[in-house]
Write a protein that binds this DNA or RNA. Structure first.
Lengths: 178, 178
DNA sequence: CTGAAGTGTTTGGGATATAAAACACTGGCG
DNA sequence: CGCCAGTGTTTTATATCCCAAACACTTCAG
């Protein structure tokens, strides 16, 4: 009677999320998805894709018909839509609200899309809805933010960028992996 | 003459980032950090911590004195400060700007703190500085955002929350792992 | 039909991340 | 002094993720 424990914890890894989203994108774009197509899209070998997809099939997220065409189960479809929605929301937020350059926004979004909680994603979406609502205060805000270019004061007590100290200046491009 | 390649790519994994930050926190709080202390803080076994830290010592991020007390090299210190700054900025952003509940903000922050680029983190910090700047438009914005409670319209063409469709509604709490 | 191209799987290997357990060292208490 | 708790390492094992390479199967052009 402890089956719910294993069932409840359905952690989808970064890799699994990408495989599932790849299948959805292939289905939407070409109408079919095979192991090789997923591998090509993700730029990994067929062998790797085969093994990962075997696991996803075993977990009931990915389906396969008699001609080896892949599909998504109801759960898999849900995961795909969830991840894609988060990706879309975050990218829009980075670019439209924060003014991050598109390429960098893509990189950041890809890394965190499957990690952000639904609650937080919905908050970001709410934020974007407000920004686009046409409410005068959001318009003013947009303009003022775009013009605002004050660097961090460096004063620990007043610097709002972080509580510890003005550490932002030290943020190098020490790209932290995975 | 290709040494720069291996040298240039210094990807710090999620795990490595946590180990390094743990050392910094222990040093700040207790004045020393040993393998066991790190393991306790991260709630992993001494064995696991020992092996991970061996790797970090080998990569020149973590130091160890003759009495087995751990420290951080200049690079390690830099990584620690960078990750902590990102963590601080993101958490503040989630809570102050988005209104995410603190516990959830902690979870989300922990997952993405080491993944967000310096560029994006700095943009978020800039955003926070503006919010706290006292600029009237930011004050108005704050208030209006707090009161704004319009759900997603569900209309694909006008819904700002995502370009594809109003997928946010489908965001379940299917916690995606790692 | 035959061979080449494409597809899917398996095998063997490497890397990371973690645990459990066994082992060795250290330091203090009685 | 001797023992035990605490500490650090190594070994053995699991799990994910990936690649390269070999193998088997299918399909299609000629």
């Amino acid at each position: 009677m402890d089956a719910w424990k294993e069932f409840e914890q359905n952690p989808i890894s970064h890799s699994a999320a990408h495989h599932i989203v790849a299948i959805k994108e292939l289905l939407d774009e070409y109408g079919y998805a095979r192991v090789s197509d997923v591998a090509r899209l993700l730029e990994i070998t067929r062998g790797s894709a085969s093994i990962t997809l075997k696991g996803l099939k075993g977990r009931g997220l990915v389906t396969e018909d008699d001609r080896r065409f892949l599909g998504l189960s109801k759960t898999g479809e849900h995961v795909a839509r969830s991840v894609i929605a988060k990706k879309t929301i975050l990218k829009k937020f980075f670019i439209d609200a924060l003014g991050v350059e598109e390429h960098q926004a893509d990189i950041d979004t890809c890394k965190i899309e499957h990690l952000v909680s639904s609650e937080t994603a919905e908050r970001v979406a709410q934020f974007l809805r407000f920004l686009d609502s046409g409410d005068p205060s959001s318009e003013h805000f947009r303009k003022a933010l775009a013009e605002f270019d004050e660097p961090c004061s460096g004063d620990t007590s007043s610097c709002p960028c972080c509580a510890e100290a003005c550490l932002v200046k030290e943020l190098g491009d020490d790209e932290l992996g995975s």
